[in-house]
């Protein structure tokens, strides 16, 4: 043990002494989120909102697709990141009730990197790019809203019309949806 200590002192003899009272340290999860936020490329279609700016682990993301069948809508997602990040993925939910094959009525999102394919090397930017992609290319083969997926598969034009009416606050197949138009 003492040998290890003398190695340590040799290694650090140039560095200054860290003294003073012990204070709370920035956590590893905070450090990582801070890094991810600095690398976020939101473009013109996305915006973040921090209800409490001191808490960077909880925020919302607004996506306003500028192309595709969800163009003109404004979609909100809540991000909840725990202290186990990036070992655990962020918990992402759509806070509105929308008509989308990969998002259920409770707001659960079927995006592979949010669950089974999450890896600590992925970052928040990968997640938001994935979310944005869901609006450009809804994926009927990984359905979470089964009716919407069948609809998209069987009749693409009809599905588009249903998306428009759901976005306007109308009902599709007896289910009413929230108005999400800008």
């Amino acid at each position: 043990m003492l040998k290890i200590w003398s190695m340590k002192q040799k290694q650090q003899q140039d560095e200054s002494a860290a003294t003073g009272p012990k204070k709370k340290k920035v956590t590893a999860a905070q450090l990582r989120v801070q890094k991810d936020l600095s690398e976020l490329s939101l473009g013109s279609t996305m915006k973040t909102n921090f209800p409490n700016p001191d808490d960077i682990l909880n925020f919302t993301l607004t996506i306003e697709p500028d192309e595709g069948m969800y163009k003109g809508g404004r979609f909100n997602f809540s991000f909840a990141i725990n202290q186990n990040f990036p070992h655990d993925p962020p918990k992402v939910k759509c806070t509105q009730k929308i008509y989308h094959p990969n998002i259920d009525l409770e707001g659960n999102v079927c995006l592979n990197i949010l669950r089974e394919d999450w890896k600590p090397v992925l970052n928040l930017n990968a997640v938001i790019v994935g979310l944005q992609f869901l609006f450009l290319e809804p994926n009927a083969s990984d359905p979470l809203n089964k009716e919407a997926a069948e609809d998209l598969k069987s009749n693409r034009e009809g599905f588009k019309r249903n998306v428009r009416s759901a976005m306007g606050g109308g009902s599709v197949k007896g289910q009413s949806y929230e108005r999400v138009l800008k």
Partner: peptide, 22 residues
């Protein structure tokens, strides 16, 4: 630099909303 303590976000260069708030 983007700067925080354990409890507070002192200044964030990005994203824009957080920059404005801090």
């Amino acid at each position: 630099p983007t700067i925080r303590t354990e409890a507070k976000s002192l200044y964030y260069q990005s994203p824009p909303t957080l920059e404005k708030q801090t």
